[in-house]
């Protein structure tokens, strides 16, 4: 394929991307790692000193950490359950012959393109607000007392908003996977006497397994870093009721100016994300060979 001259050119061409990314990754990451062993507060500059694993100890034993970990799990798992099951059902629905398929598809995909801050504020004010929200109006008109979503069930409400944003993503990917299924396989199964349910569980679902895994892994990566939806709705509250790991690290570093503690939290977040990333990379790597 290649000759010696073009090999040199190829190496020069790839260098900027590699070097920039390397710098982008290594410099801040090693700084975070370094800071995480320091007592370092932006409010008292010049007082930095080495304190070993103390930041980690504080961060991991802080009750806020436990609550943030739980909230992160609720958010990630909640959104995953809603989007994969909902996405599968929607994909099956959109794969049917219907009139105006293109338009329905566009309607379903739209939430993914809404910026997170808009989505969060629209849900917060126009739907979930206990006085003026549409949900409150619906509750009142059927005789129920209005429910203050973000005060009484903040994590669940945020999970709902985020799931609304990610449902299109899951649907779109699962629909793409579904449409790559060989129709003759389904017809063969039908000839073999398989009904709609056994066709779904024995043919369609195994075919989509890979896409479902990809959806789960990629969403997990992004969901672990959910930030804007929390910032503009609850600011992590009430108390720590809707603080996730990302938000906790943010508030520790940029609201309390505790660089050392925030960095320790950042390292913890990196480790958690890496565990997921390893599985995802394997999936993608396998595909690269094929």
């Amino acid at each position: 394929m290649a000759t010696a001259k073009s090999n040199v050119a190829a190496r020069i061409m790839i260098s900027p991307a590699v070097l920039l990314l390397l710098a982008w990754m290594l410099i801040p990451l090693s700084m975070t790692l370094y800071f995480s062993f320091l007592s370092y507060n932006l409010l008292s500059p010049g007082m930095e000193r080495w304190i070993g694993f103390l930041n980690y100890e504080y961060f991991l034993t802080d009750p806020a950490f436990f609550s943030a970990l739980t909230n992160t799990l609720i958010l990630v798992l909640g959104v995953l359950i809603v989007t994969t099951i909902g996405g599968t059902l929607l994909a099956l629905l959109l794969d049917q012959p219907i009139w105006g398929q293109g338009i329905v598809r566009i309607l379903v995909i739209a939430p993914f393109f809404v910026m997170p801050t808009v989505s969060a504020l629209v849900w917060k004010n126009m739907f979930m607000n206990p006085v003026n929200g549409l949900f409150a109006y619906v509750a009142k008109s059927v005789g129920l007392p209005p429910f203050d979503f973000l005060a009484q069930a903040p994590m669940l409400s945020i999970t709902g908003m985020v799931a609304w944003q990610w449902l299109p993503f899951a649907t779109l990917i699962l629909l793409t996977a579904l449409q790559s299924l060989d129709r003759e396989q389904l017809e063969a199964a039908e000839m073999d006497g398989a009904g709609p349910f056994s066709r779904f569980f024995h043919i369609i679902l195994p075919h989509m397994a890979r896409a479902i895994t990809v959806v789960i892994l990629i969403q997990t990566i992004f969901l672990l870093s959910t930030f804007a939806a929390i910032l503009v709705t609850t600011n992590g509250g009430p108390g720590y009721a809707s603080t996730n790991i990302t938000y906790l690290v943010y508030s520790q570093s940029l609201l309390q100016f505790d660089v050392g503690g925030g960095s320790a939290g950042g390292v913890v977040a990196v480790i958690i994300a890496n565990i997921v990333a390893i599985f995802l990379m394997r999936m993608i790597g396998k595909n690269l060979e094929a």
């Binding site: 991307a17 590699v18 990314l21 982008w24 990754m25 410099i27 801040p28 990451l29 700084m31 975070t32 800071f35 990566i221 672990l224 870093s225 930030f227 790991i245 990302t246 690290v249 943010y250 570093s253 940029l254 660089v259 925030g262 960095s263 939290g265 950042g266 390292v267 977040a269 990196v270 958690i272 994300a273 890496n274 997921v276 990333a277 995802l280 990379m281 993608i284 790597g285 690269l288």
Partner: peptide, 20 residues
């Protein structure tokens, strides 16, 4: 694969140094 892995780095892990 390595390039991809940088995308999987949670932003909060480098928030402080980038900010500073």
């Amino acid at each position: 694969m390595w390039m991809l892995s940088t995308k999987m780095l949670p932003p909060v892990g480098v928030l402080v140094p980038i900010y500073l």
